[in-house]
Amino acid sequence: MADSVYVFWLFGIFVALLAIVGFYCILITSNLIRTLIGMEIVTKAVTFLIILVGRSTGNTGLAQSFAITLIVVEVVVIVVASGVVISVFRRNGSIDVNLFRNLKG
């Protein structure tokens, strides 16, 4: 490839940054839907990494099929997770994480 050896690192930085943003969101929020949004941002980071690897190595076929699989799985997880959130809301009337500490580690 014509890419210099640093190009992978350059875009890899954005993968890391997206992951930081997503984890930050998961850690700091008290809203269940926001937690899911953070989870989505982390998944975006991973999707980006897969495509980046595919481009860097020229192996776009496998990378794309991997990314498509990931997207299909991701949407099912989000659907189930939002189903859980909606059920929590029906039961507790709130989607605040702080009302949610019955079980102690």
Partner: peptide, 21 residues
């Protein structure tokens, strides 16, 4: 991300990303 994916030579995955995500 879809645009970046398209520019990175993954048009099919980009289409999935756009429509599904």
């Amino acid at each position: 991300l879809t645009i970046v994916m398209y520019r990175f030579g993954s048009p099919l995955a980009a289409a999935f990303e756009l429509s599904v995500c």
